[in-house]
Design a protein around this nucleic acid. Structure first.
Lengths: 204, 204
DNA sequence: TCTTGTATTTATCATCCGATCATTTATTGT
DNA sequence: ACAATAAATGATCGGATGATAAATACAAGA
């Protein structure tokens, strides 16, 4: 209960938020927090583990390298799942707070993303790209165009589409149009029926 | 001197940084700050004005709508100038801190960007796009892919190219390849000589 | 009911923070 | 040289903050 409330709390106010306010939210007194965490930094570390390390890569990599499926479908579904996992108030804001505070969380996480997700994705596209092959910077460019949707919504609190999927599909199609035109959607139109999509974003 | 030091200081530690440390940097005592600013919030507002409102749009819009020049050249030069202006430690981090703190700076600034930069850019591309026309979300997608370079460098402190220009050119060419193929660079190669480019990023 | 160990609270410490005020030092005008 | 004004400082206040220690509430087993 403490870690869950702390994740929400630190996502709102940052790591400099006083522990007394956090304790009030949990419904306990402030000294009790120090029964379970030796220091405030310990509690922050527990929040990191809960929000990031725990929900890392539930089959994302396997999805990317599954060549039985068309490349575009794999990319769209990967980014759909990925953004479903990270386009949340807590994930986005704690990640930004950590970056600004100089925590090494971001470097650790992004190294993971690069090695386990971006490089495999790059390999898949290169395998399907007859002419010009993308490099890792092209991958980060695509990645950034998608992540920016979450930044607009959760950091800038600036209107962004409720459903990120159409924008994601268009970004992916533009990307494939450059590197693997044969793999992109036949029609420039967006979002085929979306038959077996599970209900998105259960809360918030 | 106070505002300049405050911009640097708040960019490093955020708006919750104590005014005493800031005063020490300026080389004065802390109460003196209150001689020039009624409150800490006033000082923060002055930093906003210095870092954002002041350096807003030095001819960017005029550059975008100047149809005597080819579309691609206008887009590349606009984003070169734009990123030269905002890809700085202070600009990037204060913008993020402000967003996380719920300041309205971000909304104000992004509305400005949308109305004065993105919509004209959209109109220029639409005018050159024979078939499929982009919408404003496509513009934000391109924008995000470029901004993400600055976020990686200054927020996540994660390796990013020293010179953002090649990545910007490739993103723009991919974009034009989708919407206005005739306007994009003839060769997929990057960055012609860059003859009359002024020395970039004078300090840090 | 009594005991024992744990969970939680009350009370508190030392420190830090934004802000104020009286006083001293520097600058300017004549 | 001297008065008037501005600039800067030292001391400090009330409140907040991370952390600690002692006291109390609570549950389980005898």
């Amino acid at each position: 209960m403490i870690v869950a409330a702390a994740a929400r709390y630190f996502a709102e106010v940052g790591f400099s938020g006083p522990t007394r306010d956090l304790a009030r939210r949990v419904g306990v007194t402030q000294p009790l927090l120090y029964k379970y965490f030796a220091s405030k930094a310990d509690l922050v570390e527990a929040v990191f583990a809960r929000v990031y390390l725990d929900r890392l890569d539930p089959g994302w990599r396997a999805l990317i390298v599954d060549r039985r499926r068309p490349l575009r479908a794999r990319m769209v579904e990967f980014y759909r799942r990925y953004t479903d996992a990270i386009f949340t108030y807590e994930w986005m804001r704690i990640f930004m707070f950590a970056g600004l505070a100089g925590e090494n969380l971001n470097a650790r996480y992004l190294e993971h993303v690069r090695e386990l997700l971006m490089k495999p994705l790059l390999a898949e596209i290169s395998a399907a790209a007859p002419a010009r092959k993308p490099d890792i910077e092209d991958m980060w460019s695509l990645h950034g165009s998608i992540i920016y949707l979450g930044i607009r919504k959760h950091i800038y609190q600036w209107p962004a589409p409720d459903d990120a999927l159409p924008a994601i599909e268009r970004a992916i199609d533009r990307f494939l149009g450059e590197f693997a035109p044969a793999a992109r959607a036949v029609s420039p139109e967006v979002s085929p029926p979306r038959a077996s999509t599970p209900p998105r974003r259960a809360r918030s």
